[in-house]
Amino acid sequence: MRYCDNCGHKLREDDVFCQQCGHKAGEPLGNRIASGKTGPPGTRRSNVTAVIICAVVFLCVCGLILWYIFKPESSGSGERTAASHVEGAVLSDTVAAAELTAEPDSLSPYHKVPAVSSGASSVVRQEGHDNTAAMTLDGLDETSWQEGAAGPGIGQQIWYELDGTYEIKYLSFKLGNWRGSSYYAGNHRPRVLRITAGGVTGDVTFPDGMEEYWVTLSNSCKADRIVLEIRDVYEGNKWDETCIAEVGIYGKQEEPK
């Protein structure tokens, strides 16, 4: 098949000039086959373009696969990252089975464990209000610990020193700012807490609700110290602090040897 070198119009074998544009017809069909020029002039350019497009698509796909394999882990939405080191942290290599459960029908033989002191990695300073970790132990729903780090407090910690070594079995939580429904919605609430009791650690994911939640530790957790770390939050609609209103620690004291 012959085509006009100027406009690509199909030519008959005996055409000397293109009937479409009047351009002189190109070389005979035999010569065109020998030289590899057997299609319209745009065909070779189209083939090159297709090869380039395929190569670009292939490189993009490879890049996406490599990014997915080696992408950094995220601990939260946006730019949130867990703090690499927070004062008071307890290091542990043992994972505890910490599960969100219903309130136990009976706590016996466990009882509420007193904490002799408490602390936090950061606190909001607010005139007329105490927002320290001690507010989570005062039995008042309207008071709370409010972390004071920039952002939603991912990686911030609160800890409790117990008055002895206990086998910890249950923990209870009232998460968020319980001063009122508008304060609850306005502040961040913990979504995931990392609980460290003695030498074991477990992450617990909580629903978002203004109610008391209970966590049961199935492993034997002998501890004289409890650490809670914020790993993720439900975002508030007004303020940039994550709050915890109340924490209860339940265990039984280790029998003397």
Score class of each variant (00 low, 15 high):
V227N: 02
S182H: 12
V16F: 13
S75H: 09
W178H: 03
R2W: 12
V116S: 04
E167W: 07
V124R: 00
G151Q: 10
T43I: 04
A245N: 05
V215R: 00
E241S: 14
G128S: 08
T216R: 06
T196G: 00
F206D: 00
D105H: 01
G39S: 13
L171Y: 04
W159Y: 14
A133G: 04
R44P: 08
A97H: 14
K10L: 13
L59S: 07
I158R: 10
A34D: 11
V124F: 02
A120K: 01
L11G: 13
Q253G: 03
E246I: 03
I195S: 00
K222T: 10
M210T: 02
Y183T: 13
V56M: 06
V247G: 00
P104K: 00
V57R: 01
E229V: 01
G236Q: 08
I249N: 04
C4V: 11
H85I: 14
S35G: 08
F70T: 12
D14Y: 13
I230D: 00
A97Q: 14
V48N: 04
S144R: 00
D208R: 03
T242Q: 01
E254H: 02
S77N: 10
V113N: 03
K238A: 11
H85F: 15
P114N: 03
K222D: 08
R189S: 13
D240A: 11
E246D: 08
G209D: 11
D240G: 10
L193N: 05
I33Q: 12
P41G: 07
V123Q: 05
Y184E: 11
S77H: 10
D141G: 12
G198R: 01
Q20C: 07
N47Q: 10
A50Y: 08
L162D: 05
S92M: 05
D232H: 07
Q157E: 15
T242I: 02
S74Y: 09
D208W: 02
S182Q: 14
S144K: 01
V113T: 08
D203E: 04
R194A: 05
V200E: 05
I158Y: 13
S46E: 09
V56G: 02
G199E: 11
A134P: 04
G202K: 02
K252T: 10
E99F: 05
W239Q: 08
S218R: 07
G26Y: 05
A96R: 02
A115I: 03
I69W: 10
V124Q: 03
G78N: 09
A89D: 15
G26V: 06
L193Y: 05
G8Q: 04
L59K: 01
R44G: 07
T201P: 00
I230T: 05
E246L: 12
T43C: 00
R80C: 15
N187P: 09
G248A: 11
Y160C: 13
A96D: 13
V16T: 14
E13K: 14
H129L: 07
S46V: 07
P28H: 08
E27G: 06
K252G: 02
P41K: 10
A223F: 03
E103G: 06
V61Q: 03
A150V: 15
G42R: 05
P104Y: 01
R32I: 06
N187L: 05
E212R: 01
V204A: 00
Q157C: 14
A55Y: 06
R45L: 09
S35Y: 07
T132Y: 06
R80M: 13
C60H: 03
V123F: 02
V200I: 08
I168Q: 09
D208H: 08
V227K: 02
A134R: 07
F206M: 01
F58H: 04
Y213C: 09
